[in-house]
Design a protein around this nucleic acid. Structure first.
Lengths: 236, 236
DNA sequence: CGGGGAATTGAGGCTTCTCAAGCTTAGTGG
DNA sequence: CCACTAAGCTTGAGAAGCCTCAATTCCCCG
């Protein structure tokens, strides 16, 4: 069941992220690598968790994007956060937990069931991942509360850049963002029309390019500095 | 050290909340009650946690209000969430954790150091408290992203009503809210001026009264229904 | 009685929304 | 290979919501 070399060196964005946010020994690494090898395929727009329903076993997003989403009574939609490869879904430390938000895939995705916490190293990785997720929620609150439309877009792109980099999914300063302008609007509390105009603005300003689904940040360091951003850190 | 009766029946809003969100046996109850008995007094506007610094031992807010806050480079302020009596501060399950946000007292407060998780019942209560806190963060994102100014105010007041009720701090539908309009603005992503106007609107609409620091919801059920709110639930 | 923080009011401007139409692109079936 | 379609992107014009600045009033506390 354990392939000393092959499994340990098996590489995937998800595994990459986890081993980067917390040091994983060989045992933990093998457990994750094994789980990642046989993911479940989930098509686009499918629900992985449903608000108010029981949370099943914890999952690891192996590839593709998902989002935590809330739908209002009148049909308005708010994306609460995006879930990227390597993110954990449905981790709970209490008994009989209920999902506090619906999670749905935004693209075709691969999802693995991960071992529940038994190994100290895994516990550590899960906890760090959890803390990071909280940090991103706080960043989202600040974006929505205090940034204007243009800065919201730029700030979110910087966050995605930072997160995808953890999973080794950034080349140069380019990365895939499978979001429509409408989805972006629902994440940033704006309308698609305004997103469109501000994206043009961002391009004119030389902050980013967006061709097809490939986003390129032209000078992430400068942009980061202009927005007063600091990368998320949860461990000393 | 253990006073069988006195300690077990010692009552405080904080203890009330914890025993309500997760069933506490006598042992857990005594541990908390004991901690709550000798709280540390913290004056208004003091920092309990500082973003980026190491997180000290976990604390329980025994009385008073605090808030998680983020200050932008240009001085703008965003309150990320409010912490009410019975809320836990600085719970982390990974090693050498760094605070992801600053926490500061909004009023004079009492804070107790709580036992780190060793008892299953405590672990359960802490985890449930944590899950609730996450639920409130998600609610805050939805408020900022998709509600207009008036609805943001009403929705937040309903949330505070719900949370204070857990700690037995609501009488009828009235409760103390030690917030200035400026603080409310910084929580809801608005300006004090606009908060002022919308509060008047809410009063005219017969949704709430706000005299001194006492808020009264005139018909919480109807308001809740109008906003499409559902109370936070994290455990089946 | 005076000082100071908080609440209130007014006027004008900017950001974002709404509604509505036209365009572009990728995928589909003839 | 070419309509045809549907989803997504783009543009325009006008309206609404919220902000800014500035002044005034209220109220608590010393």
């Amino acid at each position: 069941m354990m392939f000393a070399k092959p499994v340990s060196t098996f590489d995937s964005p998800a595994l990459h992220r986890l081993s980067r946010i917390a040091p994983l020994g060989d045992a933990a690494r093998d457990l994750i690598a094994l789980a990642v090898r046989e993911p479940r395929r989930v098509p686009m727009r499918r629900e992985l968790l449903i608000e108010g329903r029981a949370v099943p076993e914890p999952m690891l997003l192996v590839s593709g994007w998902a989002a935590r989403v809330r739908i209002l009574a009148d049909g308005r939609r708010q994306f609460l956060s995006f879930l990227l490869p390597g993110d954990l879904i449905g981790l709970c430390r209490h008994d009989r937990p209920l999902a506090v938000s619906t999670v749905q895939t935004l693209t075709d995705a691969k999802v693995a069931t991960v071992p529940d916490v038994d190994l100290p190293e895994l516990r550590q990785a899960y906890a760090a991942s959890n803390a990071l997720e909280e940090a991103y929620l706080l960043a989202q609150i600040t974006r929505l509360g205090r940034l204007n439309a243009l800065d919201r877009i730029c700030d979110l792109m910087l966050e995605i850049h930072e997160r995808l980099a953890l999973a080794d999914l950034v080349q140069g300063d380019s990365f895939e963002v499978p979001l429509t302008q409408e989805m972006l609007a629902d994440a940033l509390g704006l309308t698609p029309v305004h997103i469109n105009r501000m994206l043009q603005q961002a391009r004119r300003d030389g902050d980013l390019e967006w061709r097809g689904s490939l986003v390129t940040l032209l000078d992430p360091a400068a942009l980061s500095h202009r927005l007063g951003r600091t990368p998320a850190r949860v461990t000393a």
